[in-house]
Amino acid sequence: MAELHVPGDAVVLDGPVAGDPLDLLPGLTRALGRAGPAVVVRTSGSTGRAKRTVLTTDALAASSMATAVRTGGVGQWLLALPAHYVAGLQVLVRSLYAGTTPAVLDPADRFTPEAFAAAAAELEDPVRFTSLVPTQLQRILEPASGVRN
């Protein structure tokens, strides 16, 4: 198998993003502005063993467009997942393609319904989206149902 050349301006996400995830936006904008490999991210996929995976501009754009079609359009996103995960990265990519700046749930904070609500209150676009894992959704819904762990 031929080795893939990754351009020097590709965004490499080898682990948690230090600082503000929005600081990734300029680099992502540059990388998505050209064809070819745009992002290198560690992911376990279905194997359970993390490995570097190269995501191309075409793949990221196709995913973003498919999400827009499935959700009925574009809007502003709330980043509630770590930016170094594919799902968190995609929130940033979708935001760039939508021409919006995502609101960010501080990655240093523990995920709570209150922290999520505070971050969601920062959204300004009339069309708003987020991406959550099941545990996050469960934590948001539990107070409403009266269930406690």
Rank of each mutant, 00 (worst) to 15 (best):
P37L: 07
P37Q: 08
V39H: 10
V40D: 06
V41N: 04
T43N: 05
S44R: 09
S44E: 03
S44V: 02
G45Q: 08
G45S: 07
R49Y: 00
R49G: 04
R49I: 07
A50L: 02
A50E: 00
A50G: 00
K51A: 05
R52W: 04
T53Y: 12
V54M: 03
V54F: 06
V54H: 01
L55S: 04
L55I: 13
T56C: 05
T57W: 06
T57F: 02
A59N: 11
A59P: 10
A59S: 14
A61S: 07
A62K: 07
A62C: 07
S64M: 10
M65N: 09
M65E: 13
M65R: 14
M65Y: 14
A66W: 04
A66M: 08
T67R: 01
T67W: 05
A68N: 04
V69W: 00
V69P: 02
R70E: 05
T71P: 05
G73D: 02
G73M: 04
V74K: 01
L78V: 11
L81I: 05
L81T: 05
P82K: 00
A83S: 01
H84R: 03
V86G: 11
A87S: 15
G88D: 11
G88V: 09
L89W: 08
L89E: 14
L89K: 11
Q90V: 05
Q90I: 14
V91T: 10
V91E: 08
V91D: 05
L92F: 01
V93K: 09
V93L: 10
V93P: 15
R94I: 02
L96S: 06
Y97S: 04
Y97K: 13
A98H: 04
A98W: 03
A98D: 05
G99D: 03
G99K: 04
G99P: 04
T100Y: 01
A103R: 15
V104H: 14
V104R: 08
L105S: 04
D106I: 10
D106Y: 14
P107N: 03
D109Y: 00
D109F: 06
R110M: 07
R110T: 04
R110F: 03
F111L: 11
F111K: 11
T112K: 07
T112P: 08
P113E: 13
E114L: 07
E114R: 11
A115W: 07
A117K: 13
A119H: 10
A120N: 05
A121P: 12
A121S: 12
A121Q: 07
E122W: 00
E122M: 11
L123A: 04
E124P: 04
D125F: 15
D125N: 06
P126Y: 14
P126R: 13
V127P: 01
V127L: 06
V127W: 06
S131E: 05
L132S: 09
V133H: 14
V133F: 15
P134V: 00
T135E: 08
T135I: 13
Q136A: 11
Q136P: 11
R139S: 11
R139W: 09
R139A: 07
I140C: 09
I140T: 06
E142D: 13
P143A: 13
P143H: 10
P143W: 09
A144K: 14
A144D: 09
G146L: 13
V147K: 13
R148V: 15
R148G: 01
N149Y: 05
N149G: 09
